[in-house]
């Protein structure tokens, strides 16, 4: 049985929950938006960062039927830029979490399964990378590489995988000591099969749920790096970059003179993150018997 099947059952079980429905709707909406935004954006070229002709007359226009979210400091249509930035958000959030999850799973399970030196070294590496703030890595890459997705994604993955390695290790450690794994070893099953079927298959659910809720944190952290100007290049359609441009051009006065410049990109970050959180929370409660138990102040 592939490990994903119980997970599908878990999702199915939670489909009727109110919060889960909202989370799912938001997530699907953003996913769809990221696919179709370049076709529905009124000014797709401006969305990609090109400065329109005759920009002087179009700078910092407030929201209007023509420019739904107003225009930015370079006269570009903010609506086009904001909706087209959903693609960058999805790319960053999913690739950071997916890559970290894969690396973390492998390292964590190996450390738990092969004890001794392997365990020691892998745990030291985990500890090492957990201790580095991702902004530091971004800094290093920014010093040495061109701006782009790889800066954001690599700098986040460099520190994030360690968290997955740690939780995988903790879960897997609890499982590999269990009798049935020991018996599987004794029965001569190959380590690869034991690890996939009896270790990963058992612990994957809570880790996947954690990964879903981390999509939001990944987006927040990536936006922070882009907002600092460390990640994607200026002009790129990305919510962090759009916010950064608004501020770096005008300073804090941007908020007071053109609040829409700040409001809309931030709102989209908030909504997307909220979607992931609402998606993950019911699943987490479902999996964690401690959260399910009824309790109240009864005495």
């Amino acid at each position: 049985m592939p490990p994903s099947l119980p997970f599908i059952r878990l999702v199915h079980r939670n489909l009727r929950k109110y919060r889960f429905k909202i989370g799912l709707s938001i997530t699907i909406a953003i996913l769809v938006l990221s696919l179709v935004s370049q076709y529905i954006a009124p000014y797709p070229r401006e969305g990609l960062g090109y400065v329109p002709v005759g920009e002087e007359s179009r700078r910092l226009l407030p929201p209007s039927p023509q420019y739904l979210f107003g225009t930015d400091t370079l006269g570009r249509d903010l609506f086009s830029r904001v909706i087209m930035a959903s693609r960058s958000a999805i790319i960053q959030a999913f690739s950071v979490v997916f890559l970290s999850l894969i690396i973390g799973l492998i390292v964590g399970v190996l450390a738990a399964y092969f004890k001794g030196l392997v365990e020691l070294v892998l745990n030291y590496l985990t500890e090492l990378f957990m201790a580095i703030p991702s902004i530091v890595i971004a800094l290093f890459f920014r010093l040495t590489l061109e701006a782009g997705f790889h800066v954001v994604i690599i700098s986040l993955v460099t520190t994030w995988w360690a968290w997955y390695a740690r939780i995988t290790y903790v879960y897997a450690k609890g499982v590999v000591e269990l009798d049935y794994v020991v018996l599987a070893k004794l029965s001569g099953l190959s380590p690869a099969k034991i690890i996939m079927r009896h270790v990963v298959g058992v612990i994957i659910q809570p880790i996947l749920v954690q990964a879903i809720s981390d999509l939001g944190s990944a987006l927040l952290e990536a936006s922070g790096i882009n907002f600092m100007g460390l990640g994607l290049p200026p002009g790129y359609p990305d919510w962090g970059v759009i916010l950064y441009e608004g501020i770096s051009e005008m300073g804090i006065i941007a908020f007071t003179r053109a609040p829409w410049l700040v409001f809309y990109p931030g709102l989209f970050i908030l909504l997307t993150t909220l979607g992931f959180t609402l998606l993950a929370d019911p699943l987490r409660e479902d999996l964690d018997p401690r959260l399910r138990r009824r309790w109240k102040l009864w005495f």
Binding site: G224, L243, I252, G266, T273, D281
Partner: peptide
């Protein structure tokens, strides 16, 4: 707490 945990800090600061 769910909503606030999803809010970008720098955006909130600007608001």
């Amino acid at each position: 707490s769910v909503v606030l945990a999803s809010t970008p800090t720098f955006w909130l600061g600007a608001i």
